[in-house]
Simulated scan of single mutants.
Amino acid sequence: MKKRVIIVGAGGLARMIFSWLPAFLEGEEWDWEFAGFLDDNLKNFENGSYDKPILSTIKDYMPQELDVLIMGIANPTTKLSISKELEQRGASFMTLIHPKAMIGRNVNIGRGCVVSPGAVLTCDIEMSHFVFVNLYTTIGHDAKIGEGCTLNAHSDVTGYTELGKGVFLGSHSVVTPGMKVRDFAKIGAGSVVVREVKSETTVFGIPAKRL
């Protein structure tokens, strides 16, 4: 029997994942079909731009035996809360790695992650669960990426860096070697981190400073 692939969320990230889904799942040993999306806004696709339905609200969804979920939500706090809730109901999340991403040696990737085309994960990297790595993002050697992080397009996480739980990196941001970005911190687009960033703070600029 075919597995039902379902994307959690129906916003921009979810639609981007849907666009690449055949490439993501190419070569899988099991048969699959894309069933649709989960989103609390059931009217999201009323303009008819997508031929796959929003199956249910997230709060009302109950996993079926053959369901496999993909996390399509970018906000770290939201996706961690929703993934925990769904897993408690018995949901199973898969990790997607696009064939045009480059993955080096000794790279450990947790469940529920998405690695986009053009991303480069060099070597000796520990990546926890529900991490999203966007287009052309690079993660250097010996980096540690915490659960629920979102690394937006063209961001650069260099060697020996550490991102805590739920960190959000804006596009084209840089975390310089050996720096630590603590839990749920936000790095603005184009910013360069040259010193430790404390938990739940937002920094911006070159060098990045607290807002």
Rank of each mutant, 00 (worst) to 15 (best):
R4H: 14
R4V: 14
I7V: 11
G9K: 02
G9T: 04
A10E: 05
A10P: 03
G11P: 07
M16W: 03
G27W: 04
E29L: 15
W32R: 12
E33C: 10
F37S: 06
D40P: 01
D40Y: 02
F45G: 02
S49M: 09
D51V: 11
I54W: 01
T57A: 14
P63L: 13
E65M: 07
L66N: 14
D67F: 09
D67T: 12
M71W: 07
G72H: 00
A74Q: 02
S81W: 04
Q88C: 12
R89C: 13
G90L: 10
A91Q: 15
F93Q: 05
T95W: 00
P99W: 09
K100F: 14
K100I: 02
V107P: 02
N108M: 05
I109Q: 00
G110T: 03
C113F: 01
V114E: 10
V114N: 03
V115D: 01
V115E: 03
G118F: 06
A119I: 11
A119V: 05
L121Q: 00
I125D: 00
E126D: 10
E126S: 11
H129F: 06
V131W: 00
T137Y: 06
T137E: 00
D142Q: 04
A143Y: 04
G146C: 11
E147L: 09
E147T: 08
G148A: 01
N152D: 02
A153P: 11
S155T: 14
D156E: 14
G164M: 07
G164C: 11
G166K: 03
F168R: 01
S171A: 14
T176S: 13
T176Q: 15
G178F: 01
V181D: 00
D183F: 09
F184R: 12
V192D: 12
R195I: 01
V197I: 05
E200H: 10
F204K: 08
G205Q: 04
I206N: 10
R210I: 15
L211Q: 09
